[in-house]
Design a binder for these strands. Structure first.
Length: 180
DNA sequence: TATTCCTGTCCTG
DNA sequence: CAGGACAGGAATA
């Protein structure tokens, strides 16, 4: 472990074995990965190959295999995409810096149908003025729908960006009744 | 309204 | 260890 991971942000102490499953949902292809302690990644994209490559990039030193109990998490994640009001019940294995965890924890407190600005979220976690840092933490969110980073918008109401595409962000918010 | 500066955290060389 | 990049925001003209 002496070598630095080429493109592995915050992978210290990462899980050794990861199982994943790929499925289709109304937003495109979805991938759910699970470690020994819970779901560790939910990503969305256009094709399975892209998602798998993203997963390997995120956990370079993990032994990644497909199939297994991940199928349950996959079904739940898909249901969560189709009806965001329901939320994830599965155990989550969240990895990140203390600051990122604070952001993501506060994000899970945001109910469906509501949005928060980056500034207000920063204020909630006790670091007012760190709106930009909050945005960066949201961008690093590995659990697409379980941690509702799509409910964070600008102070003026614009959608800003989304790691998996602004269009998906807009669609999710529309389903929650936030947008027309 | 458009421009400019400031901010906190993380990644890269 | 230092510099740069950002899914923002507030101040300024």
């Amino acid at each position: 472990m002496s070598d630095t991971t080429p493109k592995a942000p915050r992978a210290s102490g990462g899980p050794d074995r990861i199982r994943y499953a790929v499925g289709e949902c109304s937003l495109g292809t979805i991938l759910v990965a699970e470690s020994g302690h819970g779901v560790c990644a939910i990503t969305m994209g256009d094709d399975a190959d892209e998602l798998l490559r993203d997963l390997e990039r995120r956990f370079p030193h993990a032994e990644i295999t497909d199939g297994g109990p991940t199928l349950e998490g996959l079904a739940e994640a898909v249901a969560c995409v189709e009806q965001p009001v329901r939320g994830m019940d599965a155990a989550l294995d969240v990895q990140g810096t203390p600051f990122q965890r604070r952001v993501w924890r506060a994000l899970r407190e945001v109910p469906a149908g509501e949005t928060v600005s980056y500034a207000e979220l920063a204020r909630r976690i006790g670091t007012p003025g760190a709106a930009r840092a909050v945005a960066q933490a949201c961008a690093a969110n590995p659990l697409a729908v379980a941690i509702p980073c799509h409910r964070v918008v600008r102070s003026d109401g614009s959608l800003s960006g989304y790691r998996w595409g602004v269009e998906r962000k807009r669609t999710l918010l529309q389903r929650e009744g936030v947008l027309s």
